[in-house]
Amino acid sequence: MKTVVEAKQIKKVYGSKGNVFSALEDIDLTVMEGEFVGIMGPSGAGKTTLLNILATIDEPTSGDIVIDGINVTKMTEEQLSAFRRDKLGFLFQDYHLLDTLTVEENVILPLALAKMNVKELERRVDEVADTFGIRDILKKYPYQISGGQKQRTAASRAIISNPSLILADEPTGALDSKSATDLLECLKDLNEHDKATILMVTHDAYAASYCNRVLFIKDGNIFTELVKGERSRKAFFNKVLDVLSALGGGAHDVI
């Protein structure tokens, strides 16, 4: 099986001399194709920093990151933009939709930026519209639809360019439990049927229980790792809760 992400000895230090804060100490991470990996940890543990670095939005202080066989730490800003556009899909807590564009336009944005031809582009929209059930709202504007619909729109945008890796930052954070479950089911489907590789940062043990594997981070280090294996989702959920209480600090925002 192919390795999608290979990160070695990633360090991230904020601030300059005298006032240094180390957000990531020394992180190694490997994600294989078709994995659905969760990253958990208490606030301030460095989850989002890690995700941003993997997303090439932020740079590590040291360390190497290879995504889909390409070393991204050596790329220029221009190359990185093209790389993000072609290889990565994003899902954020606050959706990150452009309110001047319709749902449809938001979804095709990555393809339009890549200057794909219109026929192919419309075929793809047609495909993803069903995957995330947004066909009815394609012509609407973000301010006219609900949070769940917005997040499904964002998810459609994330997968439309068939990215090698989908990065999700607290995607269920702003959703009610019904919408959250819908979204997670969709992501699971995508992972199981289309072999999409997903890396998701979350606070929420319930969301984490949808993953195949969960990494726990504490104080910028990997604390432990849980693999779902043959367990049921319910059992895995309980396991995650156990680790979280052992981890401390983050327990209060589990449920």
Partner: peptide
């Protein structure tokens, strides 16, 4: 906000 989103999904500063 808009431009931040755009940068994240892969629009370069030059663009």
């Amino acid at each position: 906000g808009h431009y931040e989103i755009l940068r994240k999904i892969g629009v370069s500063k030059r663009d």
